[in-house]
Design a protein around this nucleic acid. Structure first.
Length: 173
DNA sequence: ACGATGATGAAC
DNA sequence: TTCATCATCGTA
């Protein structure tokens, strides 16, 4: 079974989409060949109030895509070195996104984008095979008890409430 | 443990 | 226009 995830899949709150993406596959087509990795770790960033989210700064050139339609990539450079891959979720006008942190084959958000040659030029592009980067449901079943929830990584600065939100989701090995 | 390395947003 | 701050990684 190979079903390409369409826009509707992402039209839900980020924490929901983040859990549903576990066990799905990220597929990348590069110079003719496809590679697919099973997603094992995600994080949700949800709303203007979420001080860990870039969107808490409001609508800016950088955060604009987070306020747009679901099913669009939000990609940015962090620490001057690593590109982070996110997918916009939820309703238009409400800023939310899911960060893809790890897969079976490649762990770490920066390593993943390097491995898949993902850079800022995909920022704002739709999640579809036309973009050469998309997601597939390959029929893997994920039991709820195999999903571990923890606070998000690297957001200590965001204060008591937001730093502790259990919006990181990890698939047990 | 720490330095690399550049875009972003906020202050001056 | 300058400055501190980063949703990290590799080497030590």
């Amino acid at each position: 079974m190979r079903k390409v995830l369409s826009k509707q899949f992402f039209e839900y709150p980020a924490p929901h989409v983040a859990t549903k993406l576990l066990g799905m596959y990220i597929v990348r087509k590069m110079n003719g060949t496809e590679i697919a990795f099973r997603i094992t770790e995600t994080e949700a960033y949800e709303g203007l109030d979420d001080l860990a989210s870039h969107a808490s700064k409001g609508r800016t050139l950088r955060t604009e895509v987070m306020f747009g339609e679901a099913g669009v990539f939000y990609i940015y450079l962090i620490y001057g070195l690593h590109f982070m891959l996110n997918v916009v979720t939820g309703k238009k006008g409400f800023p939310s996104a899911v960060l893809i942190r790890s897969t079976d084959a490649v762990e770490g958000p920066g390593r993943l984008t390097r491995k898949l040659s993902i850079t800022k030029n995909l920022n704002g592009c739709k999640v579809t095979p036309n973009t050469s980067l998309w997601f597939e449901d390959r029929g893997d079943v994920v039991a709820k008890q195999n999903i571990i929830q923890t606070p998000r990584i690297g957001v200590e600065y965001s204060g008591e409430i937001w730093a502790k939100k259990p919006w990181r989701f990890v698939l047990r090995k």
